[in-house]
Write a protein that binds this DNA or RNA. Sequence first.
DNA 1: CGCCGCATTGACGTTCGTCAAGTCTAGTGG
DNA 2: CCACTAGACTTGACGAACGTCAATGCGGCG
Lengths: 234, 234
Amino acid sequence: MKVACSNCNLRELCMPMGLNEQELIRVDELVTTRRQVKRGTSLFHNGEKFTSLFAIRTGFFKTSVTTEDGRDQVTGFQMAGEIIGLDGIVNDQHTCDAIALEDAEVCVMPFDRIEEISREVNALQHHVHKVMSREIVREHGVMLLLGSMRAEERLAAFLLNLVQRLQARGFSRSELILRMTREEIGSYLGMKLETVSRTFSKFSDDRVIDVKQRHICILDADALKRIVNSQICH
Amino acid sequence: MKVACSNCNLRELCMPMGLNEQELIRVDELVTTRRQVKRGTSLFHNGEKFTSLFAIRTGFFKTSVTTEDGRDQVTGFQMAGEIIGLDGIVNDQHTCDAIALEDAEVCVMPFDRIEEISREVNALQHHVHKVMSREIVREHGVMLLLGSMRAEERLAAFLLNLVQRLQARGFSRSELILRMTREEIGSYLGMKLETVSRTFSKFSDDRVIDVKQRHICILDADALKRIVNSQICH
DNA sequence: CGCCGCATTGACGTTCGTCAAGTCTAGTGG
DNA sequence: CCACTAGACTTGACGAACGTCAATGCGGCG
């Protein structure tokens, strides 16, 4: 049942590379347990005590933050091999919610153990730093998107990003199934669900993608890239 | 000239707390040199090789990312005691520009040395993790702002954030001098400089703040907070 | 088979961006 | 010391993009 990290087919995504025998053994100790998360339920909630990071083994998550006055903002969508929970480190409690968008399984990695093993395995230490830095850079990209792109550009960038990550996991580079609603896409991209829907329809009319509910087929990836870079006359 | 970190008046901001004698000595070795950065010049640029993190000793910075097609987005404003350069870790090169908005001095901390000393001083290790996590959480807040707030709410949140950080550094909680232009504020907040200016004027008309170019006086902090939380009728 | 949540589409309104004119201020050089 | 200039800021008029509200369509699940 329980697969060691050293044998996991996702190891290139969540683990450091180039470890020796002994380091591999140590790193395998990171994951204490696995946890199943049913679709629609939460892995953690804002305010909950932070103890562990989670590596996604299967499934798909969204993370979102909420204000006192009830607005909420999806801050990311996470898929297999990605690490979730980094927000909790700073104050020992989570500051966002993580909700499974399909049935999922995560590897639980207690953070004190991560720190302990990091001190011995340099590659792990550096890997942790890289994972956090990558998240910071990703968020810079989202800020750029939210701060300076228009609806079509945002949605095009979103689709390209999704399909690129799926491709890295062995899925098609032209077909994908959205695990999230239009409203969740809209929240992530800073637009209303109606605008998301209209923009999908526009892309479909322009023969750039094919949309059947949540089934998306990318017909012209280059056109999408041109849209992101605003090389399209409006 | 060179003040040890253990004696620096900013140590509570950039250093871990509760170190013993020996650990203090080790941590003092983090900062190899200081570097002066003149107003308008860069600390680092997108694409430059990453070697070090920087702790701001004096002065004020902005960081910004740029797309191929020339759009750019201010991703943050940093002041004394804050750490800059975390984006560079993941790919060994910086992915944004850091520009001084006033004459500044930074402490240069080579990252390999940070990792080395982190392995020995647990408090430093955890501190590094917290600094990175804090940046991730901060960016979640910016995403919320960009994705779901309107112009007045964004600017109110921005002012409250700035003044709160200045207060933590011993400055007034009601007066501040903006180190950045309207255009830079606009870029950060995802709006045009004219909208920034108009919104300042509106706040001024409503007696919430007093604006004289870059000199801002907060007359009614509670009103600003209500604006952020949308408890104002439009 | 029917219901419910999600998605689509249309009509209309609001907010913010665009363009343009004009003002203020700090810094420079006579 | 003052006039001049360049860059930053303010303000107004107008329009485009997107949000809002409402009606309708579709598909999956019990």
